[in-house]
């Protein structure tokens, strides 16, 4: 009886494991398609390393990741091209409007400045009150054309552009933020970026490996 019981267990586990492996094989993870955007990229076009970031302006981990990204940029100047894609999470109430505002700043070629302001003031505009006033104030402080900015915020097609960005992430099975693709290699979360990011970059640049864990601590 014991042998019969054990045999049944082996069969069950084999079926369960092979079922998952077959399903995984059928749904190979894609790397996000190249979608060159001049306004949401930073760094030389021919840089050997590309860090594609899916990020949510209301996500605290995304804010912490900025320190790691800045330290990588400082450590490997001119070697990294940063690409940003919107990924407003469903659970974050004000993400949608914040991303739309950043997209509007992008249409005035000030995406990265606005991006920095949003992360710097994240706790302020993420408060329960509607952040529209704060978002307009940040635009004014950066010297953006407020008429164009206001019209852009009300434009449905801009919301569509944000969602189109997000969809490229959904297609690549991104489901948390921040998620990075360093020359196509997936790194999820700011802690893993700190732990593995530099090692991946050094490998791409054919440099000797070095401890990247220090960056993780600085970022977390």
């Amino acid at each position: 009886m014991k042998r019969r019981f054990a045999a049944a267990g082996v069969v069950l586990v084999s079926v369960l494991v092979s079922g998952v492996l077959l399903a995984k094989k059928g749904s190979d993870v894609t790397v996000p398609a190249q979608q060159p955007s001049l306004t949401k990229t930073k760094g030389p076009a021919g840089a050997p390393v590309e860090i594609l970031e899916y990020s949510d302006f209301q996500c605290p981990a995304c804010q912490r990741a900025q320190a790691v990204l800045q330290s990588l940029d400082a450590k490997y100047p001119g070697q990294i091209r940063f690409v940003y894609r919107h990924f407003p999470l469903a659970g974050h109430v004000w993400s949608g409007i914040a991303h739309q505002a950043a997209e509007c700043a992008a249409s005035q070629n000030r995406f990265w400045d606005y991006h920095d302001v949003l992360f710097k003031n994240q706790t302020l505009w993420s408060a329960p009150q509607n952040p529209s006033d704060s978002l307009l104030r940040y635009a004014r402080d950066l010297g953006l054309n407020l008429d164009a900015f206001g019209a852009c915020l009300a434009d449905e097609t801009v919301r569509g552009r944000v969602q189109a960005d997000k969809q490229t992430g959904v297609d690549a099975q991104v489901n948390s933020t921040p998620t990075f693709f360093i020359n196509g290699e997936r790194v999820a979360g700011h802690i893993e970026l700190g732990l593995k990011g530099e090692a991946i970059i050094r490998k791409i640049l054919n440099l000797e490996p070095s401890g990247g864990a220090a960056e993780a601590k600085s970022g977390s």
Binding site: K24, A61, Q173, V174, N175, S176, R186, A188, G189, E192
Partner: peptide, 16 residues
């Protein structure tokens, strides 16, 4: 299991 393992690693790191 059907998602990339990095996604779950990120969730676990996030718990601190």
């Amino acid at each position: 299991l059907l998602e990339p393992a990095a996604n779950f690693r990120a969730v676990l790191y996030g718990y601190d």
